[in-house]
Design a protein around this nucleic acid. Structure first.
Length: 684
DNA sequence: ATAGGGTTAG
């Protein structure tokens, strides 16, 4: 369209500008061109021009026009003002937008909504909330956008409250709530919200349907999915392509891949996402060959199509095909991206294909791919599985951002490669970096609350009491008695009365009938001369009828199981055992081992301490073992509790001096003592 | 005329 001469009709000119911005041929220059030919541009015109700048995101030229607008006196046109606010925040200049807003002589509800929308789009909850609070009239649009913002910020409670307080709600308000739940992985609540919405007779649209179908996919709720599919059909919007794709995805997530295929075959409107969804659907359902057929027949393959196939092969342990397809991909036009490479590196890790792995790493570096948290973690895993600790560390140190998985990969990898100390070092480094460990951090096998217990114990023994307590605070499950017990023991050992008291009281609450914790707490008080507290704890014990159960060890000799209790003298061979204990003491002393007289026993009363030091059940059992179990059979002792520290020292000494192998099994693991050392160095 | 909600593929 050519504009010649001046346009007298301002309205027509403005429409022309608007056309240039609304049409697909957004063109700032063209709108300027028209502007030059307009005799009397009005607010409408300037607004249209501002919109052109808004659409192009060119704030510098926008500012020029802004100045011009002010000069001509259109600064007080509220439409122009609002569009300028909008333009500035689209260009990321909230400062300018805010300045306009605060200085604006005429503000209407749209101005308020616009400035609010700016902060909402930036995700700035604090500023948005301030603006929202300042609004005299909390209109529908502002409330809706606040709900969406709160949802994205994870503040579900605040979003609900706002929603409940609204006097008028429309489909957008409900959609904001549905998606608020969804984004916070509260999928059931999202469905409930949708059915409440239906109950109130609010008419649905494709936006809310797409959102709620996604909730069904996540819940694998195919029954509800089908109901919603029916709603789509009744509303005549089932062929809306996004909705169509969401349904295809929903059915394949629920393993009804044939339903997906029906939709796929019936769809007049298929896009790239439809094809890719179908392929990944087949992969998810294990129909690898069907996925391949579809892939081979695709009119156009993008990086997602390739990645879907490559990662599908990797997820089904078809690693050779993973690498083959990746090689085929490189012969074509489509470039892989970070996600593709994760699958490839992961396949290398499983195949322990170090050469291909190294090649892929080099490829990543050469092509300047960003080694993000996921890709870096996969590389670390690959190198660790191949035993290349140095390469893994190099990747680790080169990473900009490290998630908890990255730390896990390095901690577990080091441990698996036998570098236990380095692994533990990384563990404490992880805490220093403010990354909370998860279950996997505590080894690749059977991660559970016990691993926390071990780690708390380990940290506690090293005197890192605060770290140990912090670790308990980050546990994803409720800390059990053993975990708190480990920390209490550490408090006792390192003389932290304050923490010990806190932990001891927690424990007593948790398990009021446990004898050991009462005694331990009372011992902690006793060691600090806090006699009144000692008396109180002893009083609680008496009051609750808590009896101290003695420690117990079992040992088998000639097919007979012998039981020893701490302080127990009932065994028929007790005289021999006593004699042997004396001999043990003498021989140990001869070899320079000091008798453990200054060790305070953890589970024995103060007054019993003197007499029972050598009557710990394990020590009795060891003495008995030396008498009854002929070498070279190891002396095998079973403890139903954790073996205590002075016993451990004794076992080490005895294994050396008496040249006997001793195996103690507590409820966590086996402890082997040979030639004066223990197998589990990491533990003690 | 200007302001609000969403999702689907690796």
């Amino acid at each position: 369209m050519v504009v010649s001469g001046f346009i007298k009709d301002t309205f027509a000119a403005s429409r022309l500008v608007k056309f240039s911005t609304d049409s697909r041929f957004i063109n700032v220059d063209y709108s300027h061109h028209i502007l030059l030919h307009i005799e009397n541009p009005n607010g409408f015109t300037w607004n249209a021009v501002m919109r052109a700048h808004l659409a192009c995101g060119s704030s510098r030229e926008g500012e020029e026009i802004h100045t011009h607008v002010l000069k001509l006196g259109f600064g007080s046109d509220v439409f122009v003002l609002n569009t300028m606010i909008n333009m500035y925040f689209v260009c990321g200049e909230m400062g300018n937008a805010r300045k306009l807003f605060e200085e604006g002589a005429v503000l209407d509800s749209v101005s308020w909504n616009s400035i609010l929308a700016g902060y909402v789009q930036m995700g700035d909850v604090e500023e948005a909330t301030l603006i929202f609070k300042r609004m005299e009239e909390k209109n529908l649009i502002a409330s809706n956008s606040m709900i969406a913002l709160l949802g994205k910020a994870g503040r579900v409670g605040n979003a609900c409250k706002l929603f409940d307080e609204m006097l008028v709600r429309d489909v957008v308000s409900w959609t904001a709530m549905v998606s608020c739940y969804e984004q916070n992985e509260m999928f059931e609540e999202a469905l409930v919200m949708f059915s409440r919405m239906n109950g109130e007779g609010v008419s649905v649209d494709e936006v809310v349907l797409v959102s709620v179908i996604s909730a069904c996919s996540n819940l694998l709720a195919v029954r509800e999915g089908k109901l919603i599919h029916g709603i789509c059909i009744r509303n005549g919007i089932e062929s809306y392509v996004n909705l169509h794709n969401a349904l295809i995805h929903m059915y394949s997530s629920c393993r009804e891949i044939n339903e997906s295929r029906k939709l796929f075959d019936s769809g007049q409107l298929l896009d790239q996402i439809s094809w890719n969804s179908m392929i990944s659907g087949y992969m998810k359902c294990g129909s690898i060959e069907e996925a391949r057929k579809l892939f081979d027949s695709m009119p156009e393959r993008d990086v997602v199509s390739w990645s879907a196939m490559i990662s599908g092969y990797a997820q089904h342990d078809r690693f050779v095909e993973t690498l083959e397809l990746f090689n085929e991909m490189q012969r074509g036009e489509v470039r892989p991206d970070e996600t593709t490479l994760v699958s490839v590196v992961s396949a290398c890790a499983h195949l322990v294909a170090l050469d291909q792995g190294k090649w892929t790493h080099a490829y990543i570096k050469k092509n300047n791919f960003e080694i993000n948290s996921v890709l870096g973690t996969t590389l670390i895993d690959m190198y660790m599985k191949c035993g290349c600790v140095e390469n893994a560390l190099e990747v680790f140190y080169g990473m900009k951002e490290r998630g908890v998985s990255s730390w896990n990969a390095i901690i577990v990898g080091l441990a698996v490669n036998g570098l236990v100390e380095e692994s533990l070092e990384k563990f404490s480094e992880m805490s220093n970096h403010g990354v909370a460990p998860n279950e996997i951090t505590f080894m690749g096998v059977e991660p559970n609350v016990k691993h926390y217990g071990c780690m708390v114990d380990l940290l506690g023994r090293a005197g890192l009491l605060e770290e140990a307590e912090e670790l308990i605070g980050t546990m994803p499950m409720a800390p059990d008695v053993a975990t708190w017990g480990a920390l209490l023991g550490a408090c006792k050992k390192h003389g932290d009365t304050k923490m010990g008291e806190r932990v001891g009281r927690t424990l007593i609450e948790l398990q009021p009938d446990h004898d050991g914790f009462h005694v331990l707490l009372s011992n902690i008080y006793a060691s600090k001369g806090m006699w009144e507290d000692v008396i109180e704890v002893r009083g609680i014990m008496r009051h609750q009828g808590v009896m101290k159960t003695p420690g117990c060890s079992l040992i088998e000799a000639d097919g007979v199981v012998h039981e020893f209790l701490a302080g127990d003298t009932a065994h028929p061979l007790m005289k021999d055992i006593d004699r042997m204990l004396d001999e043990v003491a003498v021989r140990l002393k001869m070899h320079g081992y000091a008798p453990a007289t200054n060790e305070v026993s953890l589970d024995i009363d103060e007054e019993e301490k003197e007499t029972s030091l050598y009557r710990h059940s394990e020590k009795l059992a060891i003495a008995f073992g030396i008498i009854s179990i002929k070498p070279p059979t190891p002396i095998r002792i079973m403890k139903n509790l954790r073996i205590c520290e002075d016993c451990h020292a004794a076992a080490k000494a005895i294994s050396k001096v008496f040249e006997r192998e001793i195996v103690v099994r507590d409820r966590h693991r086996f402890h082997h003592f040979r030639h004066g050392s223990c197998s589990c160095k990491d533990y003690w």
